[in-house]
Structures are given as structure tokens and as C-alpha cells.
Amino acid sequence: MIADEATLARLMAASQKGDKAAYNVLLAEAGMWLERYFRRRVPPHQLDDLVQDVMMALHNKRSTYDPDRPFLPWLSAIARYRWIDHLRKVYKHEADLLEDGDASVDSEEDVVEARVSLERLFVNLPAKQSEVIELVKIEGLSIREAAERTGQSESLVKVNIHRGLKKLSALVEKAD
């Protein structure tokens, strides 16, 4: 069970003051939250690297959290930023596909999490762009395989990935 928003905000505020016990709990909770957050948008074998990357970012940028504001929208902005950066780096063909279980919808996702979710970013992309980003950057297909699957030319797949990632990076803080 992951702690609620108010608890996380309280732990983060205490962490900024140097409370190591609070920070230890916060990192463990944030790790679990991030794991769930990325689960449907990152191949399983890359999940832990990305979660740890965001935890490092949380540590390095902890002063940018304003204790008067909610914690999860702050964490998810950082998570989205690192996720897009991660997608940009994934160019190699990755054979691993998402496991069936990873695509399940989490019934406990509340309203706040829905607003900050990664899905919210994808709905703002044209279908042709989100489709090829999903296939190449998340499911790990090659450019050629994605071209065959979607009916787009290989050049168009590359262009759509480039444009889609550029647009995603402009939408990091978008909530609706």
C-alpha cells in the first residue's frame, strides 16, 4: 500500500529539513509509486533503471519541491521529464515485449494520479505519432517492424517518433 498524497508531502517536507528516517520511508514509497507509474510505459527490464534514475533526480532536485504544494504532481513532472529523456535514448532494437500482466489497469489509481499519468500525455499526440513511439520506444520493435505494422514508411516512422517526442517534451506539465 503506497502512502497517500498528504503523507508523502509531509515526508518530503521533513526530508528537506534533513530528517533521514522520513527520507528513507519517502524513497521507498516513491520507488513503489514510480514502479506503478511507469509499469505500462516501460519494458520490464528497463523499469528499475528508470525508477532509480528518477529517485536520483528526486534527491538532486529535492530543494525544488515547494512544501506548500502537493507532492505527487511535483514527482510526476520529474518522472515524465526523465521518462521522455529515457525514450530518446532507447534507439536499439529491444526484443522484450511488454508482458500481458503489465498492461492491466490499476483499479486503485485515484483522481490525482489519473491527472498526472503518462496516458494523459499520449492522448495529446496524433495517433500516428503515439503509435510508433509505443511500438519502437516502449515495446522495442525495430523501425522496420514498426513500419510494417503501421503501414508507414521507415522514414515516416522516424519523423513521427522525432516529432512525437518533441511534442511530449513540451507537454510535461500538462494536466488535462
Partner: peptide, 14 residues
């Protein structure tokens, strides 16, 4: 990682 980050925690001004 959590243990390392916790160990290295210092107070910061928000």
C-alpha cells in the same frame, strides 16, 4: 540506492 541517498541527505532550503 535508497540507503546511499538517505545516508547522504543534508538539509536544503526549499
Amino acid at each position: 540506492l535508497i540507503a546511499d541517498l538517505t545516508e547522504g541527505l543534508t538539509p536544503v532550503r526549499a
